[in-house]
Design a protein around this nucleic acid. Sequence first.
DNA 1: GTGAAAGCGCTAACAC
DNA 2: GTGTTAGCGCTTTCAC
Lengths: 334, 334
Amino acid sequence: MRRITIKDLSKFLSLSTSTISRALLNDKNVNEETRKRVLDAAEKLGYKPNLTALNLQSGQSKTIGFVVPEMITPFSSKVLKGIQNILYPLGYRIIITQSDEDPLVERKNLQLMEEFNVDAIIINLCHETQNNDIYEHIMKQGIPMIFFDRIPHKSLDVSKVIIDDYIKSSLMVEYLIKTGRKRIVHIIGPTGIQNAVERLNGYKRILLKYNIFDENLIVHTDGMTFEHGKKAIKQLLSRNIPFDSIFAFSDTLAMGAMNFLLEQKVSIPDEVSIASFSGTELSSMVYPQLTSVQQPLEKMGEAAAELALEKIKNSTFPSRTILMDAELVYRAST
Amino acid sequence: MRRITIKDLSKFLSLSTSTISRALLNDKNVNEETRKRVLDAAEKLGYKPNLTALNLQSGQSKTIGFVVPEMITPFSSKVLKGIQNILYPLGYRIIITQSDEDPLVERKNLQLMEEFNVDAIIINLCHETQNNDIYEHIMKQGIPMIFFDRIPHKSLDVSKVIIDDYIKSSLMVEYLIKTGRKRIVHIIGPTGIQNAVERLNGYKRILLKYNIFDENLIVHTDGMTFEHGKKAIKQLLSRNIPFDSIFAFSDTLAMGAMNFLLEQKVSIPDEVSIASFSGTELSSMVYPQLTSVQQPLEKMGEAAAELALEKIKNSTFPSRTILMDAELVYRAST
DNA sequence: GTGAAAGCGCTAACAC
DNA sequence: GTGTTAGCGCTTTCAC
């Protein structure tokens, strides 16, 4: 019942613990014969190395923190999968916290990460600037922080994984125009997030280019949920502002908007077409399926994990930014 | 940059490490004055206890394994949240793996958990019997296993958190009948899962009771995804079997079914009404919103965590089954 | 009330 | 090629 340790093997084989250790680690300074005996005994007695001891010795916790705004949509789960692909085989644990889009909760989560002695933190933040002080504080402790999707204000020098929100947003809006839409609503994300600004800017640029920009078509929300999407469109309708399409910051917002329109018996995409940013299965689980900018989430997770590893291995490794490509996927909603 | 240890405090204050330790642990055998000095110094130098050392010493990894079939839907995330509520404050890490509904992947995941020296495993399994040998093997190592939602065959004595699938299924089907439906399709889950059998039995019982049971209305799937739901209904339509409603094993299957029907311009709920088992936001993100048996997922996670804790504290603690209540939520799809 | 020392499981210098 | 030993950071006897 008790765990078998290297000491048990040592007694069992009348060998020193160091020889056992060496044999297990494939050190060359071990007789082939001996190694075999050790390996056999280890197998037979069911020896499993004690990671905690290893970690204590190496001074690492072999734990990575993963801090995300939410896990209600599959967005974070997909990124997580990518991170796991890279880190599990290397023996890293991943500890996850959700911030519920609240910078204060994010703060607490980051403190938790510090207590857990994580070797690095991979984070999708809630607010561009509000927690900059802790990000800096944590990095000063020697804990690398890797940002993905939503990144902090330029003033912080950190590694990050992003897509080009500005360009992708422009492309999507231009596509809507090419399908004949002129009154394109933009449901913007929380303005405390740089991506929201970038996507808004892309939207603006195109509408200005085609000379159809109208301030009234921009709808603010104070949150990112389905309900916020619904409310946004509800407001717009009540203000009697005509529109023929919607470009939403996220698929969740888009789905909320769509749901409300369908309740109002508005036909999609005939009367109103809808597009958004996504990368999850959600886009294709609704009817009609949503046209969206499909972010390569799993790949983004893998990239973030790699960035974390390079900082862990060498803390002076210069920060890098990985720009991922995202694909526009045209579905039935446009 | 280097971590402050108890030794640094010891040097700094010219006290032995044991006194420092005692002061930090609020041991009574410390002069109040001394304790104060220690606490102040700890604060000032930024001392943070090294969890790894603690764990080595206590023989625990303070890590819990969480093994789920998938993280595409928010199902597992919600349970995870509940587990975190209980375990994070206690200093436990949680390591998560997805099995992709594949018992072989689940096996590998469980082995990974063993390697990670987890103190307990909380699992939603892929197949009722196929991995019983490892479950037993793991428990024989002294690692408690807590099952939730999908549980192993009765032959295993384990702690579990479940809802009454049979009853809830019956209630939902009876509700459909009361809304005037007579040709109720059941999309069953994988038969390697006890829940699928239970829900099927509940369905059968009611249809038999009302004398409207028809074997043809039961649709098998070989998976749990959205696409499987679509395919199931496609098959049914191609076989020209008339029906006026659907009761699906899961919301994902229901959404697939609904999506296909909407594509075929079938009106919901007028021509076909739909209900399923759920507990996630998905049910209300589609149009029309899905009627479903709403499982208390976060609460289930909390319960599972409690069960894990009692087994960790006392390995001989008898296994318990917690039966949670689930609510029938009537939405627009019926 | 405080200190010295052992020990948790393992690796890595250092001997031989 | 193998053994001895120190040490990772901490708690916990055991002395005093």
